[in-house]
């Protein structure tokens, strides 16, 4: 029996150690590269401290009580006392957690409000607005002021707040750049907003964290923070060299595929902003027929294909596209 207890204590003693060391490794959440991610990390560290206290107290009490009152040969005659409870104890272990909750909720609320604003110290900088459109399974970035558009990468100037306006052309995604900020959902016909600042030039991984179907894995993008000068140069280069995005090309782009990087010298905002409540719907169920028994799909009045394929009946379309679905799978993301 003794052997078991020892193992038990040893096993659970390891856990707080693991939690502690968690703060010192090079995990991306603990290596923030901007004020927004840093404010979240500070909140996390504050909570870790309190939680560690809770863990230590509970584990110590647990270890002590189980050790001391375990059944042994010597105490087989011991009959435990009748004990109903203790009001004072109940008050103590109600009050202390309430105090801890208060200690945690105040910075949480402060941070929640701060995350919606331009971070402290950058209020005088004019934020750069970038519209983010998530589609299956790529990220489209439109710079309305500069009039350019990129796919699967976004260049931003360092030390300047960037206001990402998020929406989606279809499924729900979550826009996440762990080194620079937290995340927010990108949803069709809605707009959410995420503000971040990169303090240093560098390349940071951004990704979709919300499962959105077969090609979800690998729906990543690069955030490249540059000096203002490099950024301006890049804009000028794009203006000079990048191709024009046409409406047809854009519709092709929205099909469920993985794409590499693309750059255009105009933006799709000229003809559609998916964040508008009455924007056309860019759905195409026929391209998602790749598993199991196929059910029926429905004609939608606000679908983008209506105007150019009004003569085509839904059924006809259905039959035609039925077998070429293999081209749009997401299993091949590794090749990009």
């Amino acid at each position: 029996m003794l052997k078991y207890i020892k193992l038990f204590v040893a096993l659970f003693a390891v856990i707080p150690v693991l939690l502690l060391t968690g703060c010192e490794t090079n995990m991306v959440v603990f290596e923030p590269q901007g004020p927004v991610a840093r404010s979240i990390m500070e909140l996390i560290n504050w909570s870790l401290m309190w939680m560690l206290l809770v863990v230590v107290v509970v584990f110590a009490m647990f270890g002590f009580i189980v050790w001391k009152y375990r059944e042994r040969k010597e105490n087989m005659n011991y009959e435990p006392p009748e004990e109903h409870g203790n009001t004072l104890f109940e008050i103590i272990w109600t009050a202390i957690p309430i105090l801890i909750v208060i200690a945690l909720i105040i910075p949480t609320v402060k941070t929640l409000y701060a995350l919606e604003e331009v971070p402290e110290g950058y209020e005088n900088e004019e934020p750069l607005t970038v519209h983010v459109t998530a589609a299956d399974w790529k990220w489209i970035f439109s710079y309305p002021e500069q009039g350019i558009e990129t796919v699967n990468y976004v260049n931003i100037p360092e030390d300047r707040p960037v206001n990402f306006k998020l929406t989606s052309a279809g499924t729900m995604q979550s826009f996440w750049v762990p080194a620079l900020a937290g995340q927010k959902y990108a949803m069709a016909k809605m707009e959410t907003q995420l503000i971040l600042v990169a303090e240093n030039p560098g390349s940071y991984v951004g990704k979709n964290s919300n499962f959105n179907g077969r090609g979800y894995t690998g729906m990543e993008f690069e955030v490249l923070a540059q000096t203002q000068q490099d950024f301006n140069q890049w804009i000028a280069d794009v203006k000079n060299t990048a191709p024009v995005l046409t409406e047809e090309k854009y519709e092709e782009m929205l099909k469920p595929t993985h794409l590499g990087r693309l750059t255009f010298k105009n933006t799709h905002l000229a003809w559609v902003n998916h964040a508008d409540e009455d924007a056309q719907t860019y759905t195409n169920p026929e391209l998602y027929r790749y598993n199991g028994y196929q059910g029926k799909t429905f004609e939608e009045e606000d679908n983008y294909m209506n105007e150019n394929s009004e003569t085509e009946s839904g059924d006809h379309h259905h039959e035609e596209n039925h077998d070429d679905h293999g081209n749009h799978g997401g299993d091949d993301h590794g090749q990009h």
Partner: peptide, 15 residues
């Protein structure tokens, strides 16, 4: 089973 993914627009199979 979050929508719109779980809807017919993105999951037309009966699954």
């Amino acid at each position: 089973s979050y929508f719109p993914l779980a809807g017919k627009e993105f999951s037309p199979s009966i699954a």
